[in-house]
Amino acid sequence: MSTTSRLDGRHRVLAVAALGLALLGVVALVLAFRGQPGPPQPDAAVTAGEAVAPQDATVPGPAQPQPAVPAAEPAVDFGPVMAGSTPVGLEIPAIGLDTDVLVPLTVGADGVLPAPVDYATAGWHTRGPMPGQLGPAVIAGHVDGPDGEGIFYRLGELVAGDVVTVTREDGTVATFTVDSVGRYPKAEFPTSLVYGNTTSRAEIRLITCGGAFDRTTGHYVDNIVVFGHLTA
């Protein structure tokens, strides 16, 4: 007599039920752990208090003898600076991004820079410098939309040295080199560092969302900001 045949009907039902329950349990556990990975995140969250300007530090060297002839008033050198021209395209080869659409983003009455309406389109901050001009030009884009990845989904993958190019209406191209990538809680957003008078050269800021997604508010808790400067 086999073991199975020794089970009467009631016990066979019990055994099948046990097997079924076990299968359901395993499926539930697999589903529980199978979360989608989410957008790439820069390594360390930086708090606004610790934020430092991602510029070349000017370290005072040892005292130098004064030149015999008194120099003229020291000229201010901002490095390369381009004339103003509306940005019309953005290319970031390191993350396979190439778009010929940039929408204008105009700060509203609430003082907040709005995100582009379209999740697949980046926009530029019209009250700031245009990319290539002196100061921090700002381009913002979504990390995702309700149904999937946005244009800046992979922004958090960028590292120092990556290249960002902005094509402008006058046909010229502003080429920026990434200096650093930071992640900041929106509640402690370093406004001056991102938008302010903290640069003495032409720079760029690429902004998207990062960190955890708060399903209660419908917003990510952090912003990822890529800092770069004009190199050509």
Binding site: L113, P146, T208, Y220
Partner: peptide, 25 residues
């Protein structure tokens, strides 16, 4: 013109990290 106040709402969560689902667990 004054700089914008704070960050930008650039995400809707459609591709957010789902992590582990405590209920299913």
């Amino acid at each position: 013109m004054a700089a914008p106040a704070g960050g930008v709402a650039t995400g809707a969560g459609g591709a957010a990290s789902a992590g582990t689902d405590q209920g299913l667990l």
